[in-house]
Simulated scan of single mutants.
Amino acid sequence: MANLILASSSPRRRELLQQLGLTFEILSPDIDETVLVNESITDYVCRLAETKAQTVLIRRPHATVLAADTSLVFNDQIIGKPESKQHAFEIWSLLSEQVHEVLTGICVATAVSCQTKVVRTRVEFQKLSLDDMERYWATGEPLGKAGAYAIQGIAAQYVTRIEGSYSNVVGLPLHETVQLLKAVKALN
């Protein structure tokens, strides 16, 4: 396989990619992640994944670059990381007994090819009580997580249903990632 670079500082993406048994290095690009006026969430995650990949490819033109961007979406709004305990409780109140989506834009770029795909996963939460929220906040797990939860951790107990890729919710849809790597001939 060509020299593979993961254009991300996410430990979850690193762990997921390691599950595939691939050898890769990490170069994390610093890009502006501002949502553009009238930009759809699908276009947003695609644009960020492509921008990350192209930014790293400029520095390493002979590499195969894998980049991704994940957003948690509820009622057509991106739900980011909690800024405080109160903010986390507000997020969980929105997600309680509701279905939200996780969208990941994936991009695999080389000097001669750039393949992008968006993966959507629907996640449903149980009704979250104030006690549930207090206990979960006390674990520290929600900090730094979009939607204030980590499906691969303690929050799994609150998920009643998932439709689509589990690894997408963690941060990198593995099946689709492998398909893109094959499409640019980075994998056999």
Rank of each mutant, 00 (worst) to 15 (best):
G80E: 06
F125D: 00
L66Q: 02
E101S: 15
E134C: 12
T139A: 09
T55N: 09
Q77W: 01
H62F: 12
F125N: 00
I26L: 13
G140I: 07
R122L: 14
S71L: 12
A49L: 04
S96H: 00
T70F: 08
K52C: 06
R122C: 13
E39F: 12
E50G: 12
H87C: 08
T70H: 06
T64C: 13
N75T: 08
A88M: 02
L48W: 04
W92L: 04
D132L: 01
V123T: 01
D43V: 11
A111K: 15
V112T: 15
V112N: 15
Y44H: 13
Q126L: 00
K117N: 08
S113I: 07
L66W: 01
I106M: 05
S71T: 13
E50W: 03
E25L: 14
E97I: 00
I91A: 03
V45F: 02
F89G: 00
V45Q: 03
F125G: 00
T42F: 10
E101H: 11
R135I: 10
I78A: 09
T104H: 06
L128H: 00
V37I: 15
T55L: 11
E33N: 08
V35D: 05
R59T: 14
T104F: 07
T121C: 10
T34D: 09
M133G: 01
G140Q: 05
I26D: 08
R47L: 11
V73P: 03
R59D: 14
S84V: 05
S129C: 04
T121L: 09
A63R: 04
K85M: 05
L72I: 08
I78K: 03
L94T: 07
H87D: 12
W137H: 01
T55I: 10
R120V: 12
R122H: 13
H87A: 11
V112R: 14
W137P: 01
L27N: 12
V56Q: 06
E83A: 13
V99N: 09
S84M: 06
